[in-house]
């Protein structure tokens, strides 16, 4: 039970990161290697505004969402738009951007781990052995709210349709009067903002350092490959599956073994079903 709750927590922030990554890939066709750094930026917004300036936590999370979303738009303008006919170039540029963000944060905050004081020490005691810190519950709820909001946006709004249409067939979308540029900017904002929120809400539970993006992005890549790279539902389901397997193995055996199993799982999926568990040619 306790392990299950831990896994749910890991699944929550992982799925936020993975879904953003899939969204950006679906619409723009570019793999954003700097996505883990967007998560890291979200965490540092908390370090700067909550730990240092002591602003209210919920407000800081909202600022994290918007700020990192805007960084996403900046990436669209400076890299992905100029390189729009060159997906590989976009990927390489995003690796460069990753280094720039890491270096900037290191200059600003130093390399040592930042400890973010917990917002609340409350623990919900579900039974003698099962405890759920409210801080972790907050992460789970945030993921739930964000993913539901995204789903409603994609299914119920005009721009949500435009986004899905562009992901499925950009040229046909243009013929309906949809501006692919506008859609790209929206996708970048949402994708980055989701990573930012994940980083912000998770910051008090983890140790924040300039390199935390790495482990997040590796897990996210595994998840979207296992889930089927274009499928949002696949990304969420694979996040949950992966988080459970990873957490169970870490708890009962060892963290390194868990990483090995995760990567092997990805290999296995690639060999057996290269389109991923939920993959088809389906996109967003």
């Amino acid at each position: 039970m306790q392990t299950g709750l831990n896994a749910l927590f890991a699944a929550a922030y992982l799925s936020l990161v993975a879904v953003g990554l899939v969204l950006i890939f679906g619409v723009m066709g570019v793999i954003n290697f700097a996505h883990g750094e967007l998560f890291m930026l979200g965490a540092y917004v908390v370090v700067a505004l909550y730990t240092n300036l002591q602003m209210p936590f919920v407000l800081v999370v909202a600022i994290g969402l918007i700020f990192v979303g805007l960084v996403g738009i900046l990436m669209e303008f400076t890299m992905f738009h100029p390189l729009r006919d060159n997906p590989l170039g976009g990927l390489v540029a995003s690796i460069g951007f990753l280094m720039v963000i890491q270096a900037s944060i290191t200059i600003g905050f130093g390399v040592r781990m930042e400890h973010v004081p917990p917002v609340t020490q409350d623990v919900i005691i579900l039974s003698e052995k099962v405890r759920l810190p409210v801080q972790r519950l907050f992460v789970i709820l945030s993921a739930f709210v964000c993913l539901t909001a995204l789903w409603l946006f994609l299914k119920k709004t005009k721009f949500g349709w435009a986004l899905r249409a562009s992901a499925q067939d950009p040229e046909a979308a243009m013929l309906q009067g949809i501006s692919t540029r506008t859609v790209s900017i929206i996708a970048m904002f949402i994708g980055a903002a989701l990573a930012g929120v994940a980083g912000s809400v998770t910051a008090p539970v983890i140790s924040v350092s300039p390199v935390i993006g790495h482990s997040v992005i590796v897990s996210a890549f595994i998840v979207i490959i296992v889930g089927g790279i274009g499928s949002l539902e696949g990304a969420v389901l694979a996040s949950v599956t992966y988080a459970f397997i990873h957490t169970v193995i870490t708890t009962f055996i060892d963290g390194v073994i868990a990483d090995i199993v995760g990567l092997s799982l990805m290999l296995l999926v690639l060999i057996i079903k290269p389109t991923g568990m939920f993959g088809t040619q389906d996109r967003v």
Binding site: W161, A165, A172, I178, Q281, D282
Partner: peptide, 18 residues
């Protein structure tokens, strides 16, 4: 070039995007 993973109605409404 219809949008394969959108419903028939969503496809039609997308045509009225502007």
């Amino acid at each position: 070039r219809i949008f394969p993973d959108m419903t028939v109605e969503e496809n039609l409404r997308t045509g009225a995007f502007l």
